[in-house]
Amino acid sequence: MRSPRRSPLHVPVFLCAVALLLARPAAADGGSGGGEADSGVSARVVRLYEDAAAATQRYEAVHREAEKQLARARRSQRLLAREQKRIAGLHDDLGRIARAQYRQVGGVPYAAQIILADSPEELMRSQHVFSQANLAVETMAAKSRRAESRLAEDQARSSALWRDLEKRNRKLAGMKKAIQAKLDEARRVLQKQADASAAAGTCRSAVHLDEASPKTGRPWVAPVRDYRLSAPFGSGGTHWANRHTGQDFAVPIGTPVRAVGAGKVVKVTCGGAFGMEVVIEHPGGYCTQYAHLAAVTVNQGDRVATGQWIAQSGTTGNSTGPHLHFEVRVTPQLGSGIDPVPWLTARGVKL
């Protein structure tokens, strides 16, 4: 079993169609109105999730480019250091040649060398050797100087680009922070409405959003896309009468909750230990429960497809923090639960 730790700002692809959403209040099980307000807040949360995800993607793209530029700058520095070392070696060689020349001729002026040479051929050979050696060293030194100049220019360009990328990073980080603040406020409003519904024991009207038909390509999916597995099935704790009856998915308030498979909504209720909850019956007799919700997007009796958005996560009912409580049952009622992880695994869903 894996426990993915993914960024809570990533939004499922199918939610892109939410930009065309239209609120359609519909009476829920024991509904009492308020659908239009709920729809506005729910839609706002989703749009902010999308904005935050887009800002995060832009930030990460710029950050990756900055890292590449930093790596190039560091490579340039290493090349420059090696080139400087090679130039220093060439300068040492040039000094040794000069000293060797001085020792061989004893510092005698060129005119005296002509007079003292045993033969013109010997003098020419000696001067030719020295001239060739000097020319080779000077050529190599000139090449090294040009290379050093180019590397210095590359380093300056890389440093300038790095500073620019850092500036853009700071700007994008500010954008993310501003979006996060708006998202947190929208989540608080959404949860406040959900708490009021749970306290009253009646669900507000379902928040219906026009969205494209889900195209998962699979018969079964996980109930949320971005999550951390928390309390497992059968675990003990003071919050449960006996043992934990489901698998918890730690997600922020407002996270879209999906139907794990096609089926019929047989229960939508508010209040009690589970707070706002949805129960779906699937072909073959199994039922799945989604609890501690902040908003629902379906009504009792609705038919749902695999991956369809049915709710938004929250922390209503007997909950210590934002998460989705997910159960698999052999009947719609509490007390018939089985471990959801192997059940989903057997259907090709790896958590």
Rank of each mutant, 00 (worst) to 15 (best):
G261P: 00
G261C: 04
A262F: 01
A262Q: 09
G263S: 13
G263V: 12
K264T: 15
K264R: 15
K264D: 15
V265W: 01
V265N: 04
V265D: 01
V266C: 11
V266E: 11
K267E: 11
V268R: 11
T269W: 02
T269N: 03
C270E: 07
C270S: 15
G271N: 10
G272S: 06
G272L: 08
F274N: 12
F274A: 13
F274W: 11
F274S: 08
G275K: 06
M276R: 12
E277T: 14
V278F: 06
V279F: 15
V279W: 13
V279R: 14
V279D: 10
I280Y: 06
I280R: 06
E281M: 14
E281C: 13
H282K: 15
H282V: 12
H282T: 08
P283Y: 01
P283G: 14
P283L: 11
G284A: 12
G284L: 09
G284N: 01
G284H: 07
G285A: 14
G285Y: 09
G285F: 03
Y286N: 09
Y286C: 03
Y286L: 12
C287V: 06
C287G: 06
C287S: 15
T288C: 08
Q289M: 11
Q289H: 11
Q289N: 10
Q289K: 14
Y290W: 09
A291P: 15
A291Q: 08
H292G: 06
H292F: 03
L293V: 08
L293W: 05
L293E: 07
L293K: 05
A295Y: 04
A295R: 12
A295D: 11
V296W: 03
T297Q: 13
T297K: 08
V298K: 04
N299Y: 03
N299W: 01
N299S: 09
Q300L: 08
Q300M: 07
G301A: 13
G301N: 04
D302W: 01
D302T: 09
R303E: 13
R303Q: 12
R303C: 06
R303M: 10
R303A: 14
V304A: 03
V304K: 01
V304R: 02
V304P: 00
V304S: 02
A305S: 12
A305Q: 11
A305G: 02
A305L: 12
T306L: 00
T306H: 00
T306G: 07
G307S: 07
G307K: 00
Q308L: 02
Q308K: 03
Q308T: 10
Q308N: 03
W309P: 00
A311T: 05
Q312D: 02
S313C: 09
G314T: 05
G314N: 07
T315C: 08
T316L: 00
T316N: 03
G317A: 09
